[in-house]
Design a protein around this nucleic acid. Structure first.
Length: 133
DNA sequence: TTTCTAACA
DNA sequence: TGTTAGAA
């Protein structure tokens, strides 16, 4: 499980992130203000971004290119954060231990109901099916 | 040189 | 969002 630690390891200065994401420093700082990313700071108060942060910014970039405004992006990414602690997801994790046919079918049905809910939303094409994995 | 914050002809 | 001033 070192990958998780590595992904959140503060590594890059804002200049590098700008090139990687094709976002302006202004935008990157703005998204931080809105809690969409939480880069660390050096002793000299300079931002250090992790691979995770960059991934988030790239998602924001994609949403931006699709013409979604800040309010929409914020809504989508924050909802995505919730899904990490989503009761359904937790239930699916537990189900791997249980694994009776009845349970599998029941959860599968819930998954589809949930997927349908997400699909009608303003999620970007790339994110629409993430919930099926 | 690069990045930070704050502010706006 | 861009841009800029002044500081670190």
């Amino acid at each position: 499980m070192n990958s998780k630690i590595r992904r959140s390891m503060p590594l890059f200065p804002i200049g590098t992130v700008m090139k990687l994401t094709d976002l302006s420093a202004r935008q990157i700082r703005y998204y931080e203000e809105h809690q969409l990313i939480r880069p660390e700071r050096t002793a000299g108060n300079r931002r250090l971004f992790s691979l995770y942060d960059i991934d988030r910014l790239l998602e924001i970039k994609d949403l931006l290119d699709e013409g979604i405004n800040m309010a929409g992006i914020k809504k989508i990414l924050l909802k995505e954060d919730e899904s990490v602690h989503n009761p359904l997801k937790a239930e699916l994790e537990q189900d791997k231990k249980v694994s009776t046919d009845e349970e599998v079918r029941r959860l599968l049905r819930k998954e589809f109901i949930n997927a349908g809910r997400f699909y009608r939303n303003d999620l970007p094409s790339g994110d629409r099916f993430r919930y099926f994995h």
